[in-house]
């Protein structure tokens, strides 16, 4: 059934990831996470390749990839900015923080800058409510953000 050599998509980068999990169907999410870490998004061909190797329907891989916010089918920027819009952050003014980032990067939430440097996304709570408003830049948690702090932050990078 499985055609191992039928790699359409840079098998060299995807295949080792799949092999790491012994091509187990139950490891689909872990595999997708690793691919996402590798490419910063889930390329269509990679998903199709994973489905073929794991012997699952492509639509199942697609369903998982669209179910979780952590996965994206669109290429993301090199730097990932998450602005927390949870209740605690919201009452402390995360809306203003988000608007400032949007103005600064000239993109809307969910978008990527044309040069592929930044991707801006919102999250609904990261469990650090006491530190709100929270902004996460490349997995670095930045607390008590204000519009002024945010603009300084983006200038430096």
């Amino acid at each position: 059934m499985r055609k191992k050599n039928q790699t359409t998509f840079e098998g060299s980068r995807v295949d080792p990831i799949i092999d790491k999990y012994n091509a187990e169907q139950g490891s689909l999410i872990s595999i997708l996470q690793d691919i996402q870490a590798e490419y910063r998004y889930l390329p269509r061909e990679a998903l199709e390749h994973v489905a073929r190797r794991l012997n699952i329907p492509v639509v199942q891989a697609f369903g998982v990839a669209t179910f979780f916010r952590a996965f994206t089918l669109e290429p993301r920027g090199r730097q990932l900015i998450h602005v927390c819009m949870g209740t605690a952050c919201h009452v402390r003014g995360s809306q203003n923080v988000l608007e400032e980032v949007e103005r600064k990067l000239e993109i809307k939430a969910g978008g990527t800058t044309p040069d592929g440097e930044y991707t801006l996304e919102t999250v609904n709570c990261v469990g650090a409510c006491a530190l709100g408003p929270v902004v996460i830049r490349n997995e670095e948690y930045l607390s008590h953000m204000t519009p002024t702090k945010v603009s300084g932050l983006l200038k430096k990078v």
Binding site: P57, V59, F62, T66, F67
Partner: peptide
């Protein structure tokens, strides 16, 4: 066939 499925959440 397994051609269709659920997407999104």
């Amino acid at each position: 066939a397994r051609a269709i499925g659920f997407a999104g959440r």
